[in-house]
Design a protein around this nucleic acid. Structure first.
Length: 124
DNA sequence: CTGGTGACCATTA
DNA sequence: TTAATGGCCACCA
């Protein structure tokens, strides 16, 4: 199937446009209540992007300031029941932990959060 | 187009 | 538990 020679409109993620995609991601992130965290994969799934965790990460990276999106509440997954803040990240760095602690989130380790205590349970 | 990169994740050893 | 591997998908050179 020689379909790629045309480059129609890069519809990799179904038929959603990129801007709409990021808008959806930001909309989901805004729904995370203070004092809770959600994983990248969780946000991706709620935004209609199963398996698009990296896309969420990229959306957060390019997040414009002043949009009111609580980026600090989107964290990486460590194990089945824990999430982690990447302290080594040059963007969020240690700032993310301070912001989360200011919202009442407690760390069980230098970079670990227990999801059974602070994980966001979406109100289906 | 190709190839490399990464605010990720699941699986395997 | 950690480390390595493969997959994922948008972005960039």
């Amino acid at each position: 199937v020689a379909r790629q020679s045309k480059r129609p409109g890069r519809l990799s993620a179904q038929d959603r446009d990129i801007a709409e995609l990021y808008g959806e991601i930001y909309a989901v992130a805004r729904q995370i209540p203070a004092g809770c965290v959600a994983t990248y994969g969780q946000v991706a799934e709620l935004a209609g992007l199963p398996g698009g965790a990296r896309t969420v990460g990229r959306a957060m990276k390019m997040l414009p300031k002043g949009l009111g999106v609580p980026w600090q509440r989107v964290v990486g997954k460590k194990s089945r029941n824990t999430a982690k803040v990447n302290i080594l990240d040059p963007i969020g760095g240690t700032v993310q932990r301070k912001l989360l602690e200011a919202e009442g989130i407690e760390f069980t380790d230098a970079d670990t959060i227990r999801l059974d205590r602070f994980g966001w349970l979406p109100t289906k």
